[in-house]
Structure formats: C-alpha cells, structure tokens
Nucleic acid binder design. Structure first.
Lengths: 211, 211
DNA sequence: TAGATTGTTAATCGATTAACAATC
DNA sequence: TAGATTGTTAATCGATTAACAATC
C-alpha cells in the first residue's frame, strides 16, 4: 500500500488565498517573500502557511524565504490552474448567466463553453459570446468539445436529473449550486456551493448581536 | 462573567440544511421526525444532529423524536429567519444584479431594497423592481429605509472603500463577495463568500484524479 | 412498565499552533 | 561562521463520534 497523505480541506481552501497574494506580490515585482510576510498578507499564521505548503513539498529556501515566481508556479500546479479546463453550465437563469459572464473563470484557466436550459424561450440566445443550447444537446456537446466540468444552477428538484445527464456525458467534476445533495459515481467529484449558508450565517450572528 | 458557550462554525453552517429538510418534511405533512431520520436526510450522523441542536436547547421529545413544526420554528429563531432583514447591494455588475433577483433572499425573510453603483450609466435603471442608485446616496438611503445588511460585489480594490461607506452608514452586517479581507470595527460582522475557492478546490481534485 | 429515542459524557479524531532542529 | 528562516515535531485546541444514562 502506498502511504496516502491526507490533505486537510482547510489547507486546500487557503491555497487560492496564497495564490492571490502571490499574484499581487508578483505584480509589485517582489521576488522573495518570507512565510511571515506572506502569512500576514493572507491573514493566517506563519506556521499554518508553512504547514500547508509542506503537504506538497519543500518550496522555500531556509534562511531566505520563498521565491515568489517559483511558489506561484507550484501553487498553480497544485490547484490545476496550469491546465485549461472547459466547462458547461446547466440552467440559464439569473445565477447561470451571471456565472457565465464571471471573469474569475478566465483568470484561473477556465473557459465557459456553453449554457444549457430546458426553456425553449432561452435557447438560441447568447450570453455575451456564450450560446444557450437545449438541455438535450448537452451530451453531444460535452463529447464534441472535450468538456471536463459541469456547473448546476437549475432548481433543486431538477438537480439530480441534470447530474445524471452530466455523468452520462462523461463529465468528471460537478460544481453544484442547487441546495441538494446529488448522487454520482465515485469517480465524479462534486463541489457544493450554497449561498444560503453564508447568508443565514450572517443573519444568525446579527440576530444574536441585536437581541 | 457569564459562561459563554461557543458554538462551532460548522454547527451554524449545518442549520440551513436542517431547516430545508424540515421544510420538506413539513410540506409532506410529517409532524414528528427522529434524529436518525432527520440526520439521514441531511447527510450527517444522528449524534452530530443532536449535538448541534443541544447548543441551543432541548427541542426533542425523548422516546419520540422532534416535532417538525416546533423545531422549524426554533431553527428559524436561531438563524434569524423569523425577523425581516433589509439589505442593499453595492456593485450593480453581473453578480450584484444576479443576487438582487435571487429568490433565496425573499424565501429567508430578506428584502433587497436597492443596488448602488458608481457608474452613471447604470444609475437610474431598474433590476426587476429594485432601483440602481448612485453610490454616494448609500448612506442616506440606509438611514431612511432602516437597512441592516450590506452586500459587496464591487471589484477587490474598491471593496475597502465601500465597506467604510457601509460602516459609516451604520450597517451592522456585511456579506463580502470581493476576494479581499476588509477592516471593520468590532461591532460589524463580515461574512466572506469566495466563489473562486470552490472552483479551484474542484480544479485541484480533478487535477489529482487525472494525473 | 417496556420500548424508544433524546441529550450528554467521554473517547477519538483531525487541525492548528508553538517551538526548534535543520540548513541556506 | 553567524544570522535568518524554513520544514517538522510535539503539544494544544476544537470538532466529531460512540455509547449510554435520562426520560418520554
């Protein structure tokens, strides 16, 4: 048995933060940064930063710090930003169309290839440069255009059906904005995004304060 | 000193899930549910569910289970859904306008009162029934309309300025979609929402799988 | 009362932090 | 070599789980 190192979820979720700070430093033409400085700018402790990086290798220079360009490249590789991913969005409602135009995708090597919707009234339209296609064309489109990721922005009750469609089309990653758990085979990765959680967390804290 | 019970963040983040499942059960006219059943439908263990609820009180009936309507009401109170919150959105870009039209707000007792933008080209327009106003009107509007929550969907470099404006206007809760930490006084609560984290987490896992 | 299920305790697991040996 | 800072170990902290006493 190979010794599989388990990487904490929390570590992965901090990498995008380090990535952003390193990008800023790179734009400021800083070439070397200490864990203290990088951690402070990222809002974490320096031992946490070093511990996080240590899961993936030894990227620093003892006595000096981290080479900004080198560490940036390493984090790019860890996060898969060095690759190009293509994705489709199922559900051309408010959230789906807003995501389709979202600049964060392109900035991290992701290309939105098409939106899909069951509503014939939305089909044939364009969201910026991205076409809205009939949901039944999803499988063919995914296979023709070498798509890897599917985004679900349909209503909760339709989410499982769309997920099944995506799995059959061969997508290996699903970003699910519908507030339901979906069942997929083990080789498909599902990332959940639930805006209501953030909103109600805020509401809860406000409620406590204002009691 | 009063004994302050610290409630784990993870507990708070699971309450909206329990809330949704209880709503479904309520619609199905189920009046009593066991922790086993409720936990299974929520995707957690039954001890976790009971532990989570125990932070807030004793809501169950030993030997029987939980009264769906009663527990629903309790979770509503904990999450602050029983109150009405009014909010404004700063930044009438893609994300801001999509959020303004997002039905999840109304469903949880939140009303979007207005959008604000510095771009005169956007000002005066309507997003559905919600007006887009000049950013400099934010303070006056917040005070006149008794607004409690501000949502930030402006670019990262403008976020701190908008946060300062919101603090001065007297907002006590900020939902920040800009990918930067913002500085606010201790009595203001900030909830961060970073879509890139979810997206890059998915990208990371896909990268590992496809290596 | 007997059966069922909650609420809570204690044990376990996992993540964070502090401290320092390794090393540039 | 001396000074600085990484990478890692061990201690601490916090969250989850299993088990069961309390009680409906």
């Amino acid at each position: 048995m190979t010794d599989v190192v388990v990487i904490p979820r929390a570590t992965i979720s901090r990498l995008p933060v380090y990535f952003r700070v390193l990008m800023e430093l790179s734009h400021m033409e800083v070439s070397l940064v200490s864990s203290d400085e990088l951690a402070a700018r990222s809002g974490v402790s320096s031992s946490q930063l070093r511990k996080d990086l240590s899961y993936f290798g030894e990227f620093g220079i003892r006595g000096a710090g981290y080479d900004v360009g080198f560490l940036l490249q390493k984090i790019r590789e860890i996060l898969g930003i060095h690759r190009e991913w293509r994705l489709v969005i199922a559900g051309a409602g408010k959230l789906g169309t807003a995501l389709a135009r979202y600049s964060g995708f392109a900035q991290h090597g992701l290309e939105v290839a098409a939106l899909f919707d069951i509503d014939p009234g939305k089909q044939g339209k364009m969201t910026g440069k991205i076409p809205v296609l009939p949901m039944e064309d999803l499988t063919g489109f995914v296979q023709e255009h070498d798509i890897q990721i599917g985004v679900i922005t349909v209503p909760a009750q339709a989410a499982q059906g769309v997920a099944d469609l995506m799995v059959r089309a061969g997508l290996k990653g699903i970003w699910n904005f519908a507030p339901v758990r979906i069942e997929v085979p083990d080789d498909v990765i599902v990332q959940y995004e639930d805006l209501v959680v953030g909103l109600l967390t805020l509401s809860h804290h406000l409620s406590r304060r204002m009691r």
